[in-house]
Amino acid sequence: MKLKKTMALVLGALVFSATGYLILDSKTTVAEIETMPVTHNNLSELESRSQLIVTGIPISSKNHVIRDEKGFTEEAFTITSFKVDNVYANKSGVKINEGDIIKVAEPVYTVDNGLKPGRTQFVIEDYEAMQKSERYLLVLRPDLKYPDLNVIVGVNEGKYNLDTSEKRVVNEKTGKFKDELIGKYNIK
């Protein structure tokens, strides 16, 4: 009787712990990656480093993490499929039309915490991943390792949310670049 009671208690504790672990393991916490993004003194500098300036909407994203033999991340970012609705500048040599889908690397990635429950999303300071169905202006250049992948120039200096419900800019400089780009290309 005592043995049965003990076993029931142990089993209950195990089930409780497992359930608790599963609940905690489903959670994602956000942490920063400390970086020094390339910064630009003026719009001309920003544009000179870019090959593509487009507007459009992100439609899907995929976590991209490659590790070395010791487990350190060699490459870590999100590949976002971005549907272009307008091309304002294109020095890439590849024709891009309205409706085309391009791949954009966002400096955000998610990793499992191993034994510790949960996952961690690592993101460059102040960067917010693009949200589906919101419209963005992107200043892009080809990735040096993956030429069909586009990198956001200057991180926060190359991505702007055009959604009228949220005109978020990271700082005074990015706000100035956004206004200048909108004015120069008459972006609606």
Binding site: M36, E75, A105, V151
Partner: peptide, 9 residues
């Protein structure tokens, strides 16, 4: 890859 940065930690 994937980031326009000078360095990262």
């Amino acid at each position: 890859p994937g980031k326009d940065v000078y360095g990262t930690v």
